[in-house]
């Protein structure tokens, strides 16, 4: 146990060292080759820009982007999981509704983003909808697989124990589906972030995506990179959050066990 912990810290240490060296090389290259600031700013300037703009604009726009991701992702969860349960229980529904959803999935939604602005306005609604549309499908597919993947002999065993479909669902089918559901969560959360940024690129006067466009327009590249940095941290943090939740909820599953070893 201690040995494992030690190894994890050591891995983190070497990771940080590598990162620091790369940043150092970047800084050095900018200075040695005298790269113009508007092309690639050195890390120090990016950091300065972040400190300068953090409380002025970055923080508020970060909150805006986070709320569109949060609401859109919540929508994905409350819609995809019940739908997955319905698909897993009714073949008829799966045959009729599923193809429609696949069709929706196949339409390039990014290309439809301008239309969403027309339909749902410049505000948060159009962002939330794009976040939802980009993230619901992965969760739906994975959760459906999860709810269907119960060993049929286990179903037989359970049927001799109880007549209650409710008990059967909560004590057996749902926990058995959780590993697949978490796989869906992980894929969906990364698409959700992408969705929010695209929506902000297409039409918005708030959000990190909007901030990047504005900085770009002003040729204030350090500012742009600062927003990008925050955005990357958001993406990584959200993913790690889901992964952490997974380790908490299904510590018994092999995917979590092998990762912790």
């Amino acid at each position: 146990m201690i040995k494992r912990m030690k190894k994890r810290w050591l891995n983190l240490f070497w990771g940080l060292i590598t990162f620091a060296v790369l940043i150092g090389l970047w800084q050095l290259a900018c200075e040695v080759f005298d790269v113009p600031m508007y092309l690639v700013p050195p890390p120090v300037k990016i950091w300065e820009a972040l400190l300068k703009y953090w409380s002025v604009t970055v923080r508020a726009n970060l909150l805006y982007t986070l709320s569109s991701i949060g609401i859109g992702y919540a929508l994905t969860i409350v819609i995809s999981i019940p739908l997955a349960i319905l698909f897993a229980t009714s073949q008829w529904l799966e045959k009729t509704v599923y193809p429609i959803l696949v069709a929706i999935q196949l339409v390039p939604k990014v290309a439809l983003a301008p239309l969403f602005i027309v339909w749902f306005g410049f505000g948060l609604t159009s962002k939330v909808i794009l976040v939802f549309l980009l993230s619901f499908f992965a969760l739906l597919v994975d959760a459906t697989t999860g709810f269907k993947s119960l060993n049929p002999r286990l179903v037989f065993v359970a049927k001799t124990m109880t007549n209650s479909p409710w008990e059967f669902f909560w004590k057996i089918r749902f926990p058995a589906a959780l590993p697949h559901i978490f796989t869906g969560f992980k894929i969906s959360i990364s698409s959700a972030t992408t969705g929010a940024i695209i929506a902000e690129f297409v039409g918005s006067n708030q959000g990190l995506g909007y901030l990047m466009l504005r900085a770009n327009g002003e040729l204030n590249t350090p500012y742009l990179f600062a927003a990008l940095l925050v955005l990357s941290v958001v993406g990584i943090a959200l993913y790690k959050l889901v992964e952490y939740a997974e380790a908490l909820v299904i510590p018994w599953h092999s995917s979590v066990r092998t990762r912790l070893q």
């Binding site: 060993n151 002999r153 286990l154 065993v157 057996i172 926990p175 058995a176 959780l178 299904i250 018994w252 599953h253």
Partner: peptide
Amino acid sequence: FQDHLLLEW
């Protein structure tokens, strides 16, 4: 059954 079918959680 041949497989134990225990609930892993």
